[in-house]
Design a protein around this nucleic acid. Sequence first.
DNA 1: GCATACCATCTTGTATACAAGTTGGTATGC
DNA 2: GCATACCAACTTGTATACAAGATGGTATGC
Lengths: 238, 238
Amino acid sequence: MEPSRSRGASASRENLAQRIYEQIKLDIFNFRLLPGDRFSENEVAERMQASRTPVREALLHLQRDGYVDVLYRSGWQVRPFDFKVFENLYDVRIILEISAVKRLCEMETPPPALADLKRIWLVSAAERLDDGGTVSALDERFHEMLVEATGNAEMALIHHGITERIRIIRRLDFTKGPRIEATYTEHGKILRAVLQRRAEQAQMLLKTHIEESKAEVRKITLHMLHTARRPLDDKAAD
Amino acid sequence: MEPSRSRGASASRENLAQRIYEQIKLDIFNFRLLPGDRFSENEVAERMQASRTPVREALLHLQRDGYVDVLYRSGWQVRPFDFKVFENLYDVRIILEISAVKRLCEMETPPPALADLKRIWLVSAAERLDDGGTVSALDERFHEMLVEATGNAEMALIHHGITERIRIIRRLDFTKGPRIEATYTEHGKILRAVLQRRAEQAQMLLKTHIEESKAEVRKITLHMLHTARRPLDDKAAD
DNA sequence: GCATACCATCTTGTATACAAGTTGGTATGC
DNA sequence: GCATACCAACTTGTATACAAGATGGTATGC
């Protein structure tokens, strides 16, 4: 689930705090914990069958990631949605990815990662996948691999952080069939442009592609928040 | 020392873990803790007159920041210098700041922050400061404010993280007088270009400016590491 | 009925205790 | 003298205990 940060590699098999961290993050992603929800460390500890110590460690980690906030001696809260934040993150994504694509076009030998992407995205209509979840994950990897392919590991790490952060709303983009189709065609165009070293065109296509996704997700998220439940009470309004 | 992340604002006055976090970071910045040094949570706890709990919290925070590593049940270690990492971070800085400057040039009304910068950097030769530490701090703020002025708070946060991360070697750039002078003239040129909406020129100047700093710092750091002490043992070589 | 003061309960922040595992030194066998 | 096995001390990871403060409900005064 978090392939980066692997340094000790195999050491990750046992670490209660990290497991709890991942679990809570999943709970937030799957809307078992809704934005604005409040909870205590003891509640989580009971649910996870653990003590407060690793729970607290996980929560502090999530806080730094921007998912939750601690209220001084008064519990924790899932950070309410702030569309301004998501739009800002989308814009940073655009900046990083456009820069990555430009760099890729300027490289003498195309990185092997591009060949991998070709095998996934430049396929016949019959070979295309149609499961929203799968395509959503592949979409994430497409954009991450563009950045990784430049060889700047730190940029890739920062981009990965942004990707994780906006995943919660980005997935909603792939609940509709037409968006999946569009993703295939647009990714294909971008890839072709990169492989042909058409930097300007690739950047333009990529920018448009991300901005469409941004606009689409905004609409869907607003709708979702209205229908699913009232996740924002009066308090969240001020 | 870390003005961002202020939400509860005044609540920050009392938090042992945060104080320890800042203290250890300073110890690393001031080379009281050298890259490669190993230490235990108990050692830090004694030095800080605290228990392991807040110490551990601070160390986990620092680990996520990239300053230290935990060795499985065998102590902590100040992460050894990795110049590739610093150069990558410098490159991300260039990407973010160039994009910020471009956006600033495209804005109809220049943000008030630019006026503040003018008062600091567009001054007569007599009014220029010459203390390395002060100018170094102002230099950080110059670049951060360029990003903040775009209004993208998330980009500013990411940029701030990078700034903190490279501060340890960036400061070394301002131990020499000529570099301070050059900073004044280059910042002045960049500011003037931005105020005149000459996007291309501003971007070019900024890129050159950061790359010079990057090259300079690289030389100085190498020299410093050789003279100060042998901080890298055989283990760090592989 | 309404406002206010108080208190039991719950919250995080910190300290301490315990568990499991690593490590380096020492004694032992040869 | 050298290699090996063992063990005591130390390390992080986790659980529990304690401290200080926030909060919401209730009783009291009017």
